[in-house]
Design a protein around this nucleic acid. Structure first.
Length: 311
DNA sequence: ATGGACCCTTGAT
DNA sequence: ATCAAGGGTCCA
């Protein structure tokens, strides 16, 4: 394959910049599964139909795209919320009265929710159940490699629902989807002949959107919340995964609560930016730095009676 | 509403 | 070689 021809590095005009660690958390913290760190410490990724490189330079972000793609910068500005809409949402979070949230937010300043394409978020999170981030990244990379349209430089976009619906079962099997292959195929068959599904669903209120998403095969409450948050920009959606269960149990005294109740707690306690708060808590607990969880075992059998820390 | 199976991979014994 | 667990969902 031909070597990629990259445009020169340029500074991306962000309302709020990002440290190197925060940029890494945004790109590789479980929101998107399409970015990889290069040997030079830069990031190369595919989002929508664009390929880009990103790097952090003294708390600002520099970008470079495939030469010939004039739309990269504008798409990046949207993707990374350059206008800073999320700053206002973050300001409205209850960090003044919630020391746990305050500490988590201090850990990755500038952390934000990526504004991904709905189909991209849906496909990736259909693959996410019972998988680690690195495994999800490997699965969707395989899907792009096997079925996705080429974008130049050896990169490929994710396949559309049509390609996925028509895909041979052996191909999906080769992508190591396991039982998730049926989720992907089932959802692809429902959406393949509805090219405007995302535009239509964008007009729904969040509860209705979650209901529509949840009716797709392979989409339960957690995946629906992730797609609403990362794909439809619903910052109030509050995905509850195993990490958030740990975090809310240990730091908010919610031991024994069901995920559904935890989700309700999150939406009520954190409000319109619940999903953004969730991402901060997720990052903090994964880093092992959430207050009240210092005693967490490195590799951890679920700690059952190690006291009841309460923030 | 709660419990178990589910495909497959990885990392720890 | 075996075991446990992984940003869950589905069905009983």
């Amino acid at each position: 394959m031909a070597a990629a021809a990259w445009t020169p590095w340029r500074r991306l005009r962000l309302h709020r910049g990002l440290s190197e660690a925060s940029l890494a958390e945004v790109l590789d913290g479980g929101q998107s599964f399409r970015w990889a760190r290069t040997a030079e410490g830069e990031w190369t990724g595919v989002f929508g139909r664009h390929v880009a490189r990103l790097r952090s330079v003294s708390d600002s972000v520099e970008w470079s795209g495939l030469s010939g793609d004039a739309g990269v910068e504008g798409s990046l500005l949207f993707y990374l919320d350059a206008a800073g809409e999320q700053d206002r949402v973050a300001e409205a979070l209850p960090w003044r009265s919630d020391a746990v949230l305050r500490a988590a937010m201090a850990l990755y300043p500038g952390l934000r929710i990526l504004r991904q394409d709905p189909a991209e978020a849906l496909l990736c999170f259909l693959c996410s159940s019972n998988k680690r981030i690195i495994q999800i990244r490997s699965m969707v990379a395989a899907l792009a490699r096997e079925l996705g349209p080429p974008l130049g430089g050896g990169h490929r976009a994710l396949p559309g629902w049509g390609e996925l619906a028509a895909a041979d079962d052996r191909v999906l099997r080769a992508c190591a989807l396991g039982y998730r292959a049926n989720y992907v195929r089932g959802t692809a068959r429902l959406l393949a002949d509805r090219p405007d599904w995302d535009a239509e669903w964008s007009r729904l209120e969040t509860p209705a959107l979650l209901e529509r998403l949840g009716a797709l095969p392979g989409v339960g409450p957690k995946v629906a919340a992730c797609v609403a948050l990362f794909g439809f920009g619903r910052l109030g959606a509050f995905p509850v995964d195993t990490w958030i269960v740990q975090a809310l149990a240990a730091a908010y005294g919610l031991r024994g609560w069901s995920p559904a109740r935890m989700a309700e707690f999150g939406r009520i306690h954190f409000g319109e930016g619940a999903g953004l708060a969730q991402q901060h808590l997720f990052a903090a607990v994964r880093a092992g730095k959430l207050p009240g969880m210092e005693l967490r075992r490195p590799k951890a059998a679920p700690p059952r009676s190690c006291g009841r820390p309460r923030a």
